[in-house]
């Protein structure tokens, strides 16, 4: 059987959008968030979320400024690692008093750190290898995502 012309394929597929569902029930989290925000609106003395938000924005702004100031030199493993460590420590401090939502997240972080070390070792032999630098950046991103995820508002975890 011959394939349809690409334009026909596009037209047909765009007219019949995918019926794809999330892998988990999202409604319970949404319901909880709505209920939480309704409660927060009634309690005027709850200023800590605002303070935390402002602090997070300040840290993010500081890091963005740092990134933009240092951008021309950010091509080596050392610079990349230094920036990542800064970001990671800022997040860990930010979430220090906030309980993690899973108990095994440190174990997952350890595994990612082991991957980071293996890539760094390979980069010592080939410091300009773009594929290895990209892999290192991805492992760093995974670590940040993990830290953010386990400390995210509980409704996002449901």
């Amino acid at each position: 059987m011959s394939k349809a012309n690409f334009d026909d394929f596009l037209q047909e597929q765009l007219a019949n959008p995918s019926e794809v569902s999330p892998s988990r029930d999202l409604w319970s989290g949404i319901e909880k968030a709505i209920a939480t925000s309704a409660h927060e609106e009634t309690v005027s003395t709850q200023y800590w979320p605002k303070v935390t938000g402002i602090a997070a924005c300040f840290i993010a702004g500081l890091l963005a400024w740092n990134v933009s100031m240092n951008q021309p030199e950010l091509n080596t493993m050392r610079d990349l690692s230094a920036l990542f460590e800064q970001q990671k420590q800022a997040l860990l401090v930010q979430y220090k008093t906030q309980p993690a939502l899973t108990s095994d997240w440190q174990g997952q972080l350890d595994e990612l750190e082991q991957a980071e070390q293996a890539i760094k070792l390979a980069l010592q032999n080939d410091p300009e290898n773009a594929a290895l630098l990209k892999m290192l950046a991805q492992v760093y991103q995974q670590q940040l995502d993990l830290i953010n995820r386990v400390h995210a508002p509980s409704w996002q975890q449901i």
Binding site: L63, A64, Q71, L74, L133, A137, D145
Partner: peptide
């Protein structure tokens, strides 16, 4: 929000 800093650091 979630990906910007890395994309700034390494241009990929």
């Amino acid at each position: 929000k979630h990906k910007n800093w890395l994309q700034k650091v390494v241009s990929f």
